[in-house]
Design a protein around this nucleic acid. Sequence first.
DNA 1: ATTATTTTATGCGAAACGGTACAAAATGAG
DNA 2: CTCATTTTGTACCGTTTCGCATAAAATAAT
Lengths: 202, 202
Amino acid sequence: MSEKKRGRPRAFDAKVTLEKAREVFWDRGFAGTSLDTLSAATQLNRPSLYGAFGDKEALYLDVMEAYRAESMDVLADALDPSLPLRDNLANVYKSALKIYLHGDTAARGCFLISTATAEAIQHERVRDLLRRSLADFDDAIEQRMALAVERGELPEGSDVHMLARLASAVMHSLAVRARAGDSRRTLEALAKSGIDMICGKA
Amino acid sequence: MSEKKRGRPRAFDAKVTLEKAREVFWDRGFAGTSLDTLSAATQLNRPSLYGAFGDKEALYLDVMEAYRAESMDVLADALDPSLPLRDNLANVYKSALKIYLHGDTAARGCFLISTATAEAIQHERVRDLLRRSLADFDDAIEQRMALAVERGELPEGSDVHMLARLASAVMHSLAVRARAGDSRRTLEALAKSGIDMICGKA
DNA sequence: ATTATTTTATGCGAAACGGTACAAAATGAG
DNA sequence: CTCATTTTGTACCGTTTCGCATAAAATAAT
């Protein structure tokens, strides 16, 4: 993995630290989170945070990237091509809701949609990473849908590019509504309707 | 309208001030906006802001409420029942994109989805007003769709409740994607696909 | 004119903010 | 052991933050 370095060894795991930082950012947003709060949550003092990740924006970007990568892993699992497309979409929404509805005081929604959008104007790198994250998600679904057309799960000549983006659109709405406090029942109904609209009524 | 008050008259218009404050919040988010910035943008010193609107959260809530009300007016215009439902939805998305794609440095998306979501966990009143705003929007579209069923624009027995929420879902996605920097062309294509999906391919 | 009432403007103050300097501590290399 | 290197912890810096205290200014009521 990594060769032993010269100086004093780190007393923390960078990946775990990013996860702890993510929890704070997720609840309070980027601008609403202070370095003191991050320091307390990660149990690292500010200089250690600074040394390992750079300033607050760089740390936030690292958290964003980790979330993007994790999301793509979850999506890849949900889109298991040995299952029908309809089941795939159900799994996508189910795993999304599992994430979105978690939270201490209230459901947190999607980390990117709930916190990165707020910074997207002032911080160009946040905006770019957000756009890339959404596009990656769209593309993965589109790829599965292209396969579905080949297999006859979707009608010949389906516009898989737009179908995929509509499938993502339902998820964006789930994210926003979850953060706004909509009930699990309400969100599950929206997910089901979305599936019916894209795959045809079962 | 309002009877003359006793003391020194206000040198500003509260509605105009809320609009100026909105511009700042829209670009920088709630937590990312300081009272100094708001004071400069509104040309009111802090004590005047405080006297007229209360603290920063109260001011933000006033801005949210004004945006919600304006959005409902725009929506009502777009849903003009003398036009076909398909045209109505096209107008809804067109007027939404007109708002979302405006901005100095980058497209700002939806004020509520881009800035209120970030605060929704920590500020319960923001979360509640956000949820109410989304619900009002859904309900207005649902009402128009119920009329569409009566008129035969939509098939008998259509689930107008869910159709309306899917139509909103497309708009939520337009809002998020606009803020992430997607092009007008891309967003217009998504809007068109959404209409086709809900009203049937033209 | 005087008084009561409300808004404006200056400026304060305590706290929180992001970021860093510096020295102590902990490791590997020689 | 000695030195170079890296991380850790304390303490600090200048700035910004939110909110308010206070007094001047502008109006209506009397």
